[in-house]
Write a protein that binds this DNA or RNA. Sequence first.
DNA 1: GTAGTTTTTGCGATTAATTATCAATTAACT
DNA 2: AGTTAATTGATAATTAATCGCAAAAACTAC
Lengths: 177, 177
Amino acid sequence: MSPLSSYTAASLKAELNARGWRMTPQREKILHVFQNLPKGNHLSAEELHNLLERRGESISLSTIYRSVKLMARMGILRELELAEGHKHYEVNQPYPHHHHHLVCIQCNKTLEFNNDSILKHSLKQCEKEGFQLIDCQLTVMAICPEALRMGWPSGLPSNWSCSRSISQSEPLEQEEE
Amino acid sequence: MSPLSSYTAASLKAELNARGWRMTPQREKILHVFQNLPKGNHLSAEELHNLLERRGESISLSTIYRSVKLMARMGILRELELAEGHKHYEVNQPYPHHHHHLVCIQCNKTLEFNNDSILKHSLKQCEKEGFQLIDCQLTVMAICPEALRMGWPSGLPSNWSCSRSISQSEPLEQEEE
DNA sequence: GTAGTTTTTGCGATTAATTATCAATTAACT
DNA sequence: AGTTAATTGATAATTAATCGCAAAAACTAC
Ligand SMILES: [Mn+2]
Ligand SMILES: [Mn+2]
Ligand SMILES: [Zn+2]
Ligand SMILES: [Zn+2]
């Protein structure tokens, strides 16, 4: 099984067993949900729990938490810290399907984008320091067009109002000494 | 006050008052701690609280939480999601002092590194989507040399063991169709 | 500087996400 | 089929962070 291909129920079982762990219907269902999740979607433990509940394939919340954590540690899922106070998960698609996230800190709208050079820079830094790269996540915190149209930052109810954010017209070419 | 310079107690007060908010000894003390924090250090709310406690300048934990959140929203501090289950803060040094983080997911050792092109890529993506950039954080999750020497992943007690992490010898040049 | 107004603080209580405990169940191996 | 150890589900516990409120303090205008 190539590290660039997707997990199947069979390959998940194989990897679990190789570590002395077990395949279960719960783990298979969870894998299935993530494999069929439309591109650009992310699920929190709670959301995954509700989704399965609605489908009549209920799994206890404890098991949900345990499973996504395990699958993240195995490299099957990616654990994301977006801007909502809880973790989100998605299938971990290694290079070249690796992507990053643009998040509106006002409304939590999240867009994905591909950029291979970020992985390249991360690898370079790892090599320089003798680390072994596992994953890299660029999170771009920004304000979406909708929030801008609504008058961000002044026209907003006790929310973000950054007055010294990095200017979009800042010079960006030269290296600092 | 240039957006590229550091905040002083006076400029903090000016910015607070401009928004109808108030300067307090608590906020001044917290600013002072971050301004004198050695490069590469980050503080959680709890750690900041303890640090001030030890110096005999005790501030209630509620106020600590409120203050760092406020100063992050003002753009004075940067709110970091590293690998420890709680937020860390550092002074927000805009370009060209902007930096990113290489984190060992095994021991939480954190190294900083500069890389202007990441900010450039983030800006490009923001412009493409019509967003206004506030901050961007590349978090590189990896295994440090120490953990590797200890035999990661097999020689580790019920911890991370990614078998399909992005290989360091993967081809990285071509674009996907 | 004093008074008035509004924000801020400190305390305790509260929420929300996640983890721990443990008996009952079940997957894997022989 | 029987043995063994991992896993589940239910519940309790933990932890980071927020909330409500009365007292204290900062700004503003006299
Ligand atoms: Mn994604
Ligand atoms: Mn830093
Ligand atoms: Zn938005
Ligand atoms: Zn380490």
